[in-house]
Amino acid sequence: MTSYARVDFQTDQEVRWCPGCGDYTILASVQNFMANAGIEREKVVFVSGIGCAARFPYYMNVYGMHGIHGRAPAIATGVAITNPDLSVWVVGGDGDLLSIGGNHLIHAIRRNLDLTILLFNNQIYGLTKGQYSPTSEPGKATKSSPAGSIDHAFNPVSLALGAEASFVARTLDMDRKHTTAILQAAHEHRGSAVIEIYQNCNVFNDKAFIQLTGKTERYANRIDLVHGAPIIFGAQKEKAVVWAGGRAEIVDRAAVNPSDIIVHDAHAPDASAAFALSRLSHGPYGPTPIGIFRSVRRPVYDKVLDEEVAMSKAARGDGDLKALVTSLGTWTVD
């Protein structure tokens, strides 16, 4: 196996994001992850849509396509279906993947194609210079919503779970260690893996994630989901998550019986618990779960289709053109 360093995944193209943009940090995390993960470079394909985030493939020294706005999941679907042994990655912003490309995203997830989908959520349209996005909080004042947005926002994790995702996680651009661990888990997962990455756009939506990244705030608000561990958080681990009337609820840990604290099960066959956890927050404005919400196995579209082709060849032999064109019956004129 070839051994790589980060530089092997860098291209000679000048990276053109604004200085200080969270996209740089994510790029570094992904390149480092690739170098250490033992993935052969020629087997990797990055497909993106349009937006700041979607410039990503130009900076990755692998096979790549910078597509059109919203359509990256569709394009990646074609790559994955026809070449199941490639490692196919999708990169897009919240506008790209949730607004114009929302339809393709949910169907790629539903089919469980072997794709890793990186959703860079900065809660704003960056490339078009600052309009509200489908994840912007209601009331957000932007160029296209001077009086405050009246759109209700998507919760991307809830959306992915609702679309039957087999793997859904959330991470933060700033936390490279966490990002790397999630990338590793997603890469090992067979099927569509959705990673929502909270990404700071320091030009049009700075500090959107301060509740999770701020030096003091993060201790109070970051709920780390760890499979098999009770869900507790806070600077002193003084908070816990329990079931209350079918919902997940945050309580003072001292006030509940330790056995009532939810033990996170990312592999639960049913998505209800993961969904309930995704509803603990609706945007990074208070306590917000981070980590792997769900990771289960189910048939992978591209593999199943490959098997169908192989089975058809085994049962009927390799296709023969002459047999095909005469299959409806023929007659001869002398």
Partner: peptide
Amino acid sequence: AEDEIAAAGAALGAAFA
């Protein structure tokens, strides 16, 4: 595909591949 845009996109991805 889920629509014609996706069908064209998938075809293009398959062409790239």
